[in-house]
């Protein structure tokens, strides 16, 4: 079943066109890794899917319904599509628990006790039950990102967007975040993941998309795209990433 359908998505900033017409279908339970050089438009694509950036043209269809451009429609979509950011973007004036509760209390209007119970559950899921009362300033990067994931999960998203979730982390902290994301994959959640972690994409994704110059350049199973790329640019990209592997 198709949960997300994108047709002819174009994004321009002034005279510069970043995305030149992207078509994309996401089936329920799919895990799509989006790869591409910096500037290829992968983050922009992700941000257009929950309308953090307004597409300049094209159509986004969520669960059979075309998403409109009114504030009300955008808010409804964002509640159904969770997002995790490269820089975590935790709310520094709230504890870990407060961060995870915030959407439930302010957006969903749940009562405090209910939201608190749910938030505690999500923190436990990402292995941070003991950090509930800790403020972000006292968490490591990996812990911050896990709180951010719990914050997104608390809203019961039908689709999760990860925008380079480990790119801002020290290497030794990457694993704990990838493990959490893999556990979500194992639950059968639908997710799109912009990443530079090729190994992770290979093992966890069900499909890999390679973006270049604002277009889908090549896509297929991890084996097809990462092991046997058909196109020259995909090969060059993968080669540059593996330059120093051993």
């Amino acid at each position: 079943m198709t949960i997300l359908r994108v047709r002819g998505l174009i994004k321009r900033y002034g005279a510069v066109e970043v995305l030149h017409g992207i078509d994309l279908d996401v089936e329920r339970g799919e895990r799509i890794a989006i790869l591409g050089a910096s500037g290829s438009g992968k983050s922009t694509l992700l941000r257009c899917l929950n309308f953090m950036e307004m597409p300049s043209a094209g159509e986004v269809v969520l669960d059979g319904e075309v998403v409109g451009r009114r504030e009300r429609d955008l808010i409804a979509v964002r509640q159904r599509v969770g997002m995790v950011f490269q820089q975590f973007n935790l709310f520094p004036h709230m504890t870990a628990l407060g961060n995870v509760m915030e959407g439930l209390v302010t957006v969903r209007r749940q009562n405090k006790a209910e939201a608190q119970a749910r938030a505690a559950k999500e923190l436990a899921r990402v292995g941070l039950a003991d950090k509930a009362q800790t403020y972000p300033a006292h968490l490591s990067g990996g812990q911050k990102q896990r709180v951010a994931i719990a914050r997104a999960l608390a809203m019961d998203p039908e689709l999760l967007l990860f925008d380079e979730p480990t790119s801002a982390l020290d290497p030794e902290l990457v694993g704990e975040v990838l493990n959490v994301i893999r556990s979500l994959a194992d639950e059968g959640r639908t997710m799109l993941l912009v990443t530079h972690e090729l190994g992770f994409a290979y093992h966890v994704a069900t499909r890999v998309i390679f973006l270049a110059d604002g277009l889908v350049h090549e896509q297929g199973t991890p084996d097809e795209v990462l092991k046997n790329p058909r196109k020259e640019r995909t090969r060059a990209f993968l080669a540059s990433h593996r330059q120093f592997s051993f």
Partner: peptide, 21 residues
Amino acid sequence: RGQWDAARALGMRWGQAMRRI
């Protein structure tokens, strides 16, 4: 800007983001 991003990504309106975040 990331604070606005995170608030909006949760589905907050402008006023909610301003007041809470």
